[in-house]
Amino acid sequence: MFPEHRATAIALAFAALAPARLAHAQACCAGSGAVTPARLAIHEDALVGTTLRVGGVLGNYAPDGAYSSQPPHTTEVDVEEDLLAAARITKRAQVAVLIPLVETFRAYPGQTAHSGGVGDINLGARYDFALAGEARFVPGIAVLVGATFPTGRPPEEATQPLAVDATGIGAFQGNVGLALEQTWGPWLLNVSGILAQRATRSAQGVSETLGTQLTAIGALAYSFRSDLTLGFVGSYAAEGNAAINGVTDPDSHKRVLTLSGVALYPLTDALRIQGSLFLTPPVSSLGANQPASAGMTLTILMGFS
């Protein structure tokens, strides 16, 4: 369960190079990073930062979309600390890396376990053909490409009870995406789509190919004169059925909706802090084969101009 959840998280991480720029809806200054923060603001040459993400599982969606709460006395808490860095290659091109450190705490009746480790490392690149705010009616247009490497421990290699030391999906993943965004004074609207394809992997004599995943992300933000920016981000990830030994498993598709409220404040021209509260609405039919969770993120970034 957790590694699949990670796949969605990685898609959102990849979107660091997508929606972004919450702060200063006018395409300026400190504002980078709505969905994830590893995106350079227009004048930045590089940035480094870290994100803490803590989420608790509320329940699970069955293959038919039926939602059920966690059983009594069952708890799962997922913690992730991401190390982020981005660098500008040309005026309109940037690259980013995300190194996740993943920890999982699970408690079932009569058993608890806690462990973690390095997750699947993501590399991404973004090219802006047009920047938001450059034109009155034509939005900013960016193409995203990325790759996620199976540097984490896949579930079948977990050795700890309750597989709490599983930190990755065990497969190479390639991503492509398109991001559109526009500003109107203090308002920003961003719409992005990301397509992810996972390579076939073998584990314990079984060949598995996860389905293609499509993640759609929308973000709306408003910047106040105090420099505080508040935003709302919605993401919907849908994944096709997996193939096991070349045979499609009809009940393995996944989908999940995540809603986030985001706040960003630039402490200085170089240092910014961002927090969010996120929720997978625990409503039947909004998900499938995925956990529903709620939690928060806190990000600190230092940019270099």
Partner: peptide, 11 residues
């Protein structure tokens, strides 16, 4: 030197 303001809406 480097100017650090917002992108100008020129189109």
């Amino acid at each position: 030197t480097k100017a650090l303001g917002c992108t100008l809406e020129l189109r």
